[in-house]
């Protein structure tokens, strides 16, 4: 059974849940079965927020993540909390300036650092689209969904007037990781 499981976690307000919804909707456009769940505190901002996405070719029985293939961590607590749920050969994409992966990680676990908030602020003056930079990076690194579907999904999911900046941020994340060699950005 093909089943891909992804956790996206961060502080409330960083858009972890929206990133999961956009990823899930993109996978649905790709013709996959999708289950996306969320958890968050009572606060609108701050606290912790998490999105889980399960993507499969067949009907999904258990809708939550059992062992994650990929983790996108945009905060230190999210990293600490979920990195142990990633499978040994999995991939962890971290927000470079917000997460310090100090603990010892399994040997085959691939770790990729993306300065998403810096990119979002520098390129667009809007740190809030850092989640799309992270999503672009994840898609480019894994091919878990097609970029075309992601772009279509963003347009269907974000507020009116915010579509293009989110799409542009997605592409920045995609470009950033595409330029990487062995998970390291040579010029940064």
């Amino acid at each position: 059974m093909t089943r891909t499981e992804i956790i996206i976690g961060g502080f409330g307000g960083q858009g972890s849940v929206l990133a999961g919804v956009i990823l899930g909707r993109a996978a649905a456009y790709d013709g996959k079965k999708v289950a996306q769940s969320r958890s968050y505190g009572a606060e609108a901002r701050g606290g912790a927020a998490r999105s889980e996405v399960v993507i499969a070719d067949e009907e999904i029985d258990y809708p939550l993540v059992i062992t994650a293939d990929y983790l996108v961590a945009m905060s230190q607590p999210a990293f600490e909390r979920y990195v142990s749920k990633v499978k040994a050969s999995g991939l962890v994409v971290i927000e470079e300036d917000l997460v310090r992966p100090e603990r010892k990680l399994p040997e085959n676990l691939k770790l990729v650092k993306v300065p998403a908030t810096k990119i979002a602020s520098r390129e667009f003056g809007r740190p809030m689209v850092a989640n799309m930079v992270m999503l672009g990076a994840l898609a480019a690194l894994t091919g878990v969904v097609t970029i075309d579907s992601l772009i279509k999904s963003i347009r269907a999911s974000v507020s009116k007037g915010m579509e293009e900046i989110n799409v542009a941020a997605l592409k920045k994340g995609q470009e950033y990781t595409s330029a990487m060699v062995g998970g390291v950005h040579e010029t940064s």
């Binding site: 919804v21 899930g24 649905a28 996959k32 999708v34 289950a35 996306q36 769940s37």
Partner: peptide, 9 residues
């Protein structure tokens, strides 16, 4: 709350 907030195809 799980089924209510779950998104699925």
């Amino acid at each position: 709350a799980l089924v209510g907030h779950l998104m699925e195809t």
